[in-house]
Design a binder for these strands. Sequence first.
DNA 1: GACTTTTAAATGTCAGACAAATAAAAATTC
DNA 2: GAATTTTTATTTGTCTGACATTTAAAAGTC
Lengths: 243, 243
Amino acid sequence: MKIDPKNPADLSAQIAQAIRDAIVSGALIVDERLPSEAELADQFQVSRPTVREALKRLAAQALIRTQRGATGGAFVNRLSFEDAYSQQITTSTLLLSMNAVSFDTACEARYALERACAPMSAERRSPDQLATMRAEIFRQAQPGLTDEAFCASDVAFHRALVDGAGNPVLSYQLAGAVEAMQPLMNMITFTARSREAIIELHGNIADALDARDADGVEAALIELEAYTRQLARDVAEQRRKPA
Amino acid sequence: MKIDPKNPADLSAQIAQAIRDAIVSGALIVDERLPSEAELADQFQVSRPTVREALKRLAAQALIRTQRGATGGAFVNRLSFEDAYSQQITTSTLLLSMNAVSFDTACEARYALERACAPMSAERRSPDQLATMRAEIFRQAQPGLTDEAFCASDVAFHRALVDGAGNPVLSYQLAGAVEAMQPLMNMITFTARSREAIIELHGNIADALDARDADGVEAALIELEAYTRQLARDVAEQRRKPA
DNA sequence: GACTTTTAAATGTCAGACAAATAAAAATTC
DNA sequence: GAATTTTTATTTGTCTGACATTTAAAAGTC
């Protein structure tokens, strides 16, 4: 692990990159202890605050964890699926909100990925996951539900559908696509009638999953995508001529 | 933006979270300048090094960028697709390498997602993307190619396929799935014969895309997945009884 | 008016110090 | 001798104050 001493700026970034490379390449393995901050400062010939800034960069990516005390220090962290989920969701959400991605583009991507889960989910979904979906459908039918709560329940429903595929890698990859859509969905103020339609389509999905009918799930997802996109178009249209 | 002063540990993490929340919620908008480090230190009632550690955490996630000089400071960064790509790839790669994910699970997820792109790619792929795929197939057929180079070309081929769908959100979501597989693929030392088979399947995919034949692309991808998984099983078998 | 110099503001880095947590080692007690 | 308590050393977390470097605006000069 070496850094370029000729470039005296961004030392902490260089050090972070050097350690990151060591982790990704496998030179540092999970749960291995890094040298203490003082030793790292010595090795890289920088001050301890600079080393600390580098370590905080790595901690922000969940690549290391730190522990105080006599046997403490910085340890290579086993990146958990949960950590990866939340990173993925933050990144995806910001990517969509900051880059003027059209609703259609985001929607298309999300449903394309979700349809990819449909056959596996139809085959493998557990009774528990099906129960979760039914419960969310029930919640969505409650009157007086705020738009935010309705959307949160919508996300929970679709996550259960994705998790039904029983493939944690797939669930991780889809987490961003499903969750990042929520802020965009929130912008579509659902009327009572549109909620009804969505709930019905959710019911169709659940029924098809119940019957382990892969084609049925896919068909219902296609319908739901078409309906969602139409809804977005209508809202955009209304905003254009509000009278 | 407030932090909990009762908990005197992890102050920099708390401050980073407070600013992160402000960005995600939209309270801080793209290109907006944050207060100077000295001002933030004042606001949060902490020292400047602590503020700096918080800012470095955010910089590690590409949420802010810093600029030196009179009109410098920390600015909310527009998260680019490229930044998001590389974060996604790093996270996905580490997730797979650190969590004993089976080859089958990773492979299934990757091909499920890739098949989701097939219909769109068949419809929309540009001649340029098709040419990229043909070029990669040609490269893969070169004798003397290292396993690493073969796999890198494989990744380039599949990325062109995904990009062919013309949906940047989809490309972003799949970047992790496709790229993170490479280290796992590298572990399968391809024999000359297995390379030939893969190249032929790649050719089938390109031909089907050329003909805008969505079903053909999907069928070829299914074949490729089955072949890849069989290959992995064979390698595992050979390792069990190397004689 | 165009160019040069100065200045001020901001980040980047450093050095040294103390606080707090933590586990191992040492001392004490039974 | 064993169990408990106290001490000690190590390490991270934080603070203070300082200086270097970069950068753009302000002031000065021709």
